[in-house]
């Protein structure tokens, strides 16, 4: 319960949200799906800002000129079930969305809320990072676009400027030979992740020309294993290079004990899950 909340506002467009945030500052709390906000216990919050009623509809998922536009208020369940998006990078973003909790949770959680409020175990942000998505932001002065690398270089709440919000996410439709895969490793069917891995691979003939290996649940935000990618680029995808990439990802992993597992086990699982995800992405790309 947010006990000191006095009012809930329903802005009609992103500009109105920005104006409210400028006026209210830290007294305002944005509500999208509400699953995170409902657990907030901040006595300083007096104004709730429900951003799900904005027009033009911000829960749209559209395709134009080789890009998918994902509105910030798109529900995770819509994303999980979207037939068009299942064709992009072999449906890895749909798979990541389907990994989020149970269906009633996915019916509530929004893509924008999940992307901005990212927790250590959040699944879709790992896929978005691997897919090299772009993040369109609206702020008091101007609109700007950040790459996924920049958006997740720190926690997005520290990347967003005061009164700035995420409006939509863009995912490019890849061309040429490519493949993707997402793999969540958790203790039970809808427990939070012990390790999340998302991999995108591009090929020139059968040589890997580009690789993005994103890892989640080990740090506060998902991160790219550049060392793993280096082990793949310029080579055929075969057991030796895949194992070297998985080992490199493990060496690059900085993590800690938590309630789900210990540091050492999680590091071991990074190696295992990275290997499996690269294999799956490779199979998807090369039609095995």
């Amino acid at each position: 319960m947010i006990e000191n909340a006095k009012v809930c506002l329903y802005p009609k467009n992103p500009g109105e949200v920005v104006r409210i945030l400028e006026q209210e500052g830290r007294r305002a709390l944005i509500l999208a799906g509400g699953t995170t906000a409902s657990q907030v216990r901040d006595p300083g919050v007096t104004t709730l800002v429900d951003i799900t009623r904005m027009a033009p509809p911000t829960d749209a998922l559209t395709h134009e000129d080789g890009e998918w536009f994902l509105g910030c208020n798109l529900r995770i369940q819509q994303l999980a079930a979207h037939a068009g998006l299942k064709q992009v990078f072999c449906g890895m973003l749909c798979d990541a969305a389907l990994s989020v909790g149970s269906r009633p949770i996915r019916n509530a959680v929004t893509l924008g809320g999940n992307a901005v409020s990212v927790f250590r175990w959040s699944d879709p942000p790992v896929a978005l990072l691997a897919m090299d998505a772009s993040f369109d932001l609206v702020g008091p002065e101007r609109e700007r676009t950040l790459t996924a690398d920049r958006f997740y270089s720190r926690h997005p709440r520290r990347i967003l400027k005061p009164a700035e919000i995420l409006k939509r996410i863009r995912v490019g439709v890849p061309s040429g030979r490519h493949g993707g895969a997402f793999f969540k490793f958790a203790r039970t069917a809808f427990d939070l992740a012990v390790v999340d891995v998302a991999v995108c691979l591009w090929f020139d003939s059968d040589i890997c020309s580009r690789a993005r290996v994103a890892i989640g649940a080990t740090r506060n935000v998902p991160w790219l294993s550049t060392r793993a990618a280096r082990m793949l680029v310029g080579k055929r995808l075969e057991g030796k290079s895949i194992r070297a990439a998985a080992r490199a990802a493990r060496e690059e992993t900085k993590t800690a004990d938590d309630i789900r597992t210990g540091r050492e086990y999680r590091e071991q699982m990074v190696e295992v899950i990275v290997r499996r995800t690269i294999e799956r992405a490779g199979d998807n790309a090369l039609g095995v």
């Binding site: 909340a5 509400g34 699953t35 009633p104 509530a108």
Partner: peptide, 17 residues
């Protein structure tokens, strides 16, 4: 909520407006 199954414990009253 508008026909979809959701958790009442994860929604705030203001969102139900």
């Amino acid at each position: 909520v508008d026909g979809t199954a959701q958790r009442a414990c994860l929604l705030l009253a203001g969102q139900a407006e």
